[in-house]
Design a binder for these strands. Structure first.
Length: 770
RNA sequence: UGGGGCGUCGUCUAAGGGUAGGACAGCGGUCUUUGGAACCGCCGGUCGUGGUUCGAAUCCACGCGCCCCAGCCA
């Protein structure tokens, strides 16, 4: 039997997080031997970047633990699912690098077994056929604020339910005539528990099972049981399913050990926070609108966040994995800064993309002192020194060249480091040139540049001239015509969904720019898959659909980072929500108290109980009763903080394992100085957790305390072990006291009194600083 | 105004009673035949209020804010 193991942090693909902590604990305790997860998309659309993140969590964690991650099509709705989506999902998941081995499944493969399980529930009286109409079911369910009412069909006999359900499955009824529901609790505050529907009649053609089935299981039924069937241990999903977990657990518990399901391992669901991305949308509904309105080119349009789009754009799966890693996992729903994705893409491409030159908006430059008809071949390395990869190619150089229109300015702004009349600039990998004239047309537009080259500047700078910048170029002779498709963010604002109006209002019409220009001839011989860096422009590759023919078409994968751009356009749109906690009304909390509570408050205050504690006691009857009981054994003022802060939660929950008498006995001894507060608190917490007499526990702990000599020695050791912090403290960084106390406490194994530690510490610290 | 979940630099994420740290972004610098990369530095945060504690992002209380649930969708 294969066994999972806890990976060292250094070997993890998925950074440690709250889920891996749970898994670590499950492995340590022996609850599970092998970690099995699953990635369960519904085949009703094309996978997108959200799927990349979710699969990273499911598959990445399984990989880290040497477990398995199944790929399962969650296909329980024949109305929306199609085989082409199944193929797309398999293709895209494989592209991301996930390997599910033979563990590729369909929920629809389990229809037979799921049906048996449904009958089992019926036989046990835990499920019933409801014959209410859809509207009636809705009405009976109640609302979030009002409990539901039981359906008149809820108490049908097992026999009748079984008969009805079998006839439903046999196709005797029309859609909507009946449904199968779990009998749980129609008045549950959790809406999901109000007798969730397990099966519905659908007279639809299923893309795999055809017309074999007339009833189809709902997600809430099929999902947990599919997990169970497959031996999934940790069923990871996003936070909107938190409420569904109650149904999940209900089904697992009620079917454990039945219908061929083992008693163990049982699956458990863990939810993580959803991630969304700025400047884009992923919902199928919205994507369809973009496609159907022709705002994008199809499901694989390079501007789309679909994996097909990202792939066509030229993004590599490694970049997506790196992105997912950086985003991380937590319980909180988050919207990720698009800059993080852009960084991941650049960081992936920088070390592998050969540098070549292309001109996307050509402006002719004629070098009047360069012989007509002459053509040189200049050697140019593919990579800059910092990348450190070998390789170079020949680049033709001649009298007529193309340069980037935006690299020339008639009236250069200050700080300009490019071409300008009278200025010198380097042609990348070639000569230094001086521009003498800008030829303009009637409209005043620059149509051609004229200048000279400085012959002795190959590999060295001329003396006495300031060379401003280095610009890319392509010799007119030999240049390859090419199309460049420059992609930008699909939307103009970071949160297209937020605010009034449609997300379509925020569509960025400049998200695609198609330019005709030139690229150096060397690329003709390259592998068409090559991702290039066109120097100073960005990362590009040939579009796999349009760009691999006679005339290359290049997609810009991502621009280079541009630190020249002056004040960057700020985010126009604030986050959709402002999260400013408003100040709560202060003393009127007391005023808001009911008269009786108010009286309790006053009485407590009179007895010397602090304001905050008195308020809490006045507000909670159980606390009040407890404290009153305490007063039989000692002063309430002494007990109040402990009752409120240490015992409060347990008392409110009605499960305080420490009674008033035991508490007061402990506090009395504490007052006498038999032990310190820390000991008392720890003893109390222990008694609360595991039972026992807090006073005895405290005495045991006190007896275990370090002697004064041992403590002094320990402090010396700790100070010696942290010379840097010691120096910093003596230089005035007083906040380090907490640091030292913490270290000593840890070193003592909790067997020291922090107050005492502090005094010993300050003695030793001050002695050294004198 | 039912139940549930969640609040840490601009963004994402660590710290689980003991120096609030990292990354992305931003800013500045070094270097540069890419205004790239690399390197160095800076900036900047615990939702609020009170309490417990030697010490609170962490524990307690009360607020505030956001998200999810009333599909025979998943």
């Amino acid at each position: 039997m294969p066994v999972s193991r806890i990976p060292p942090d250094s070997e993890r693909l998925v950074p440690p997080n709250f889920i891996t902590e749970i898994i670590d604990e499950d492995l340590r305790s022996g609850k599970y031997d092998e970690i099995v997860t699953r990635f369960p998309p519904e085949p009703n659309g094309f996978p997108h970047i959200g799927h990349a993140i979710a699969s990273f969590i499911d598959c990445g964690i399984a990989r880290d633990y040497r477990g398995r991650c199944h790929l399962r099509m969650d296909d329980t709705n024949p109305l929306t699912e199609e085989m082409r989506y199944v193929e797309a999902i398999k293709r895209d998941m494989a592209w991301l690098g996930w390997d599910w081995g033979e563990h590729f499944y369909f929920a629809s493969d389990y229809y037979e077994r799921l049906y048996e399980m449904a009958e089992q529930l019926i036989k046990e009286g835990k499920a019933y056929v409801d014959s209410l109409s859809e509207e009636e079911i809705r009405a009976y369910r109640g609302t979030v604020e009002k409990p539901g009412r039981p359906s008149p069909y809820r108490e049908r006999s097992v026999e009748e339910n079984l008969d009805l359900f079998r006839r439903m499955a046999a196709g005797e009824f029309e859609e909507g005539a009946h449904v199968l529901r779990a009998k749980i609790d129609m008045s549950a505050p959790n809406m999901k528990l109000r007798d969730p529907i397990l099966y519905r009649i659908l007279r639809a053609e299923h893309y795999r099972t055809g017309d074999r089935w007339k009833v189809y299981p709902m997600y809430d039924f099929a999902h947990p049981l599919s997990d169970y069937i497959e031996g999934v241990t940790h069923s990871l999903c996003s936070s909107e399913f938190i409420d569904n977990r109650a149904v999940y657990d209900w089904l697992v518990e009620n079917l454990a050990g039945k219908c061929g399901l083992p008693e163990w391992p049982r699956p458990k669901q863990i939810e993580f926070g959803r991630r969304s991305l700025e400047y884009t949308v992923v919902s199928k509904r919205k994507l369809i609108q973009l496609v159907e309105r022709g705002l994008v080119d199809g499901w694989d349009d390079p501007r789309l966040p679909t994996l097909a789009g990202l792939r066509r754009r030229g993004v590599r799966p490694q970049a997506l994995i790196a992105f997912a890693r950086k985003v991380g996992i937590s319980r909180t729903d988050r919207t990720v800064d698009i800059a993080l994705l852009e960084w991941a893409v650049r960081d992936d491409l920088n070390p592998i993309a050969p540098r070549v030159m292309a001109v996307t908006e050509p402006l002719k430059l004629v070098l009047s002192n360069y012989p007509e008809g002459k053509l040189e071949e200049l050697e140019a390395p593919y990579f800059p020194p910092d990348v450190g990869r070998p390789g170079s190619r020949k680049v033709p150089f001649g009298r007529e060249l193309w340069v980037e229109r935006s690299d020339f300015a008639l009236e250069p702004p200050k700080g300009w480091k490019r071409l300008t009349v009278g200025g010198h600039s380097r042609l990348r990998h070639a000569y230094v040139v001086r521009i003498d004239e800008a030829v303009t047309n009637d409209a005043g537009e620059v149509v051609e540049l004229r200048g000279v080259y400085l012959p002795d500047t190959l590999g060295k700078n001329p003396e006495g001239v300031r060379v401003k910048g280095a610009v890319h170029w392509v010799a007119a002779a030999g240049a390859l015509s090419a199309e460049f498709r420059l992609y930008d963010r699909l939307f103009k604002v970071p949160f297209p969904d937020a605010g009034e109006g449609s997300f379509l209002d925020h569509y960025n019409p400049d998200s695609l720019k198609v330019l005709q220009g030139y690229v150096e001839p060397s690329v003709a011989a390259d592998d068409p898959e090559t991702r290039y860096q066109f120097e100073r422009l960005g990362y590009f590759w040939r579009d796999p659909e349009l760009g691999r023919g006679e005339k290359p078409v290049f997609n810009r994968i991502i621009t280079l980072k541009d630190t020249w751009k002056k004040p960057k356009a700020q985010k126009q749109e604030a986050r959709p929500t402002a999260k400013v906690g408003k100040r709560a009304g202060p003393e009127d909390k007391v005023a808001a108290l009911a008269p009786e509570a108010r009286e309790v408050y006053e009485r407590c205050r009179h007895l010397g109980v602090g304001e905050a504690e008195a308020l809490q006691i006045a507000r909670d009857e159980r606390l009040r009763t407890y404290l009153e009981d305490c007063s039989a054994y000692g002063p309430p003022a002494l007990a109040a903080p402990w009752v409120v802060h240490v015992l409060g939660k347990a008392i409110r929950a009605g499960e305080a394992k420490v009674g008033p008498q035991a508490l007061m006995a402990l506090l009395a001894e504490l007052e006498k100085g038999a032990f310190d507060r820390r000991v008392a608190k720890q003893a109390l917490e222990e008694a609360l957790a595991r039972g026992g007499d807090p006073l005895e526990l405290a005495r045991a702990r006190a007896a275990d305390r370090l002697s004064a000599e041992a403590l002094a020695e320990l402090v010396r050791e700790v100070l010696a072990a942290h010379p840097d912090e010691l120096a910093a403290y003596r230089a005035g960084k007083r906040g380090l006291m907490g640091f030292f106390v913490g270290r000593v406490m840890r070193a003592s194994g909790g067997r020291a009194d922090p107050k005492q530690v502090q005094s010993v510490l300050s003695q030793q610290l001050d002695r050294g600083s004198a």
